[in-house]
């Protein structure tokens, strides 16, 4: 299904950020991406904050997947 594909893809991208396989992405992981992505530190901070919907400072796979879905224009609802 579309949701399965989305989840799988999000998982792959999540793993790019979560190199230690912690199961979450912290701001430090995001800051490390600055060297590899054509984004400004401020922009990565923006991305992090907009994905971190509960504002706890950690991005879970669930939050990441939801953000990826909204980037693709998919609604969260089934």
């Amino acid at each position: 299904s579309m949701k399965e594909v989305l989840t799988q893809k999000a998982h792959e991208l999540f793993a790019l950020c979560d190199r230690e396989n912690k199961g979450f992405i912290g701001k430090r992981d995001m800051q490390r991406m600055i060297q590899e992505l054509p984004l400004e530190p401020d922009q990565l901070e923006d991305v992090f904050d907009s994905l971190d919907v509960d504002g706890n400072g950690f991005l879970t796979l669930e939050e990441f997947t939801a953000g990826f879905g909204s980037f693709l224009g998919l609604d969260e609802a089934d």
Partner: peptide, 30 residues
């Protein structure tokens, strides 16, 4: 200043940029 990052309205484009970059990186990796 609308060109300044962090203004809120930039988030969507920045998010798209971020995911696009990740996808490109993923595609480019061996």
């Amino acid at each position: 200043d609308p060109t300044k990052p962090g203004a809120g309205v930039t988030s969507e484009g920045v998010l798209a940029n971020f995911f696009n970059s990740l996808l490109n990186k993923k595609a480019g990796s061996p």
